[in-house]
Amino acid sequence: MVGRFPPSALVLGGLALGLILVFMLLPLGVVVAASLTAGQFLTFPPQGLSLRWYGDVLASEAYLAAAWTSLKVATLVTIAATVIGTAAAIGISRRRLPGSALLAGLFLSPLVLPSIIFGIGLLIVFSIWGNGPSLLALALGHTVLTMPYVVRTVAAVLADADPAIEEAARTMGAGPVARLRFVVLPQAKGGILAGAFFAFNVSFDEAVIALFLRTPGVETLPMRIYGQLEFSPTPAVAAVSTLMILMTIIVVVAIERSLGLRKVAT
């Protein structure tokens, strides 16, 4: 029997993995560290430790307003994308529809089209046919952007579900609504939850479409951070960013619990 990995591969590989992990986590770690500074300026390493910049953020009306806007948009988007995306995924996974492969491609297309192109398209459409960008315009754009995640996670779960159960329900006399409610939706539950968490996270973090649809009165958290970074960021920006990283960690844990990261990621 040959050993699976020679010692040189283990040493080299371990070293490489260590370096890659430092590289991947460095920017996040630096932000978290800088948010804890007691000093006036944004520095790494921080000067002394304190939570004063978190207090600063929580007392800042601009940040609170931006957080509220982000929350409103993300909540609207999560509901819309989850409902529409789940319905579409169930419809597509029936495979009775002609051209369901093409349809699946259409539903996933917002994932691969550059959001800068979509963003400028939305700006032009809302300026020509509407009253310019608004909170609802932003929510609509984010719904398009996040629906594919829901379609993907729900379709992935349904592909593994046993279709015989729904058939059994049908032969026992269950109508379409009852079958959806008591068979298909429970089967798809993990995928629906994971998709909803994804949708919330993507909308809450998204900056490109938000910047194109920028309008007075609608400023999300990523837009505010971007604006601060263009000028001179204070440690308060690091504190807000750390809170956003924290939220992402919570979402990642939630996705792992509901569907499993491995299943979602590949």
Binding site: L26, V30, D205, L229, M244, V251, V252
Partner: peptide, 16 residues
Amino acid sequence: LPLMTSVVVRTFGWMM
């Protein structure tokens, strides 16, 4: 985890 963190936040980290 980094993939799901806002690009704005990651870029901020790199700026520092």
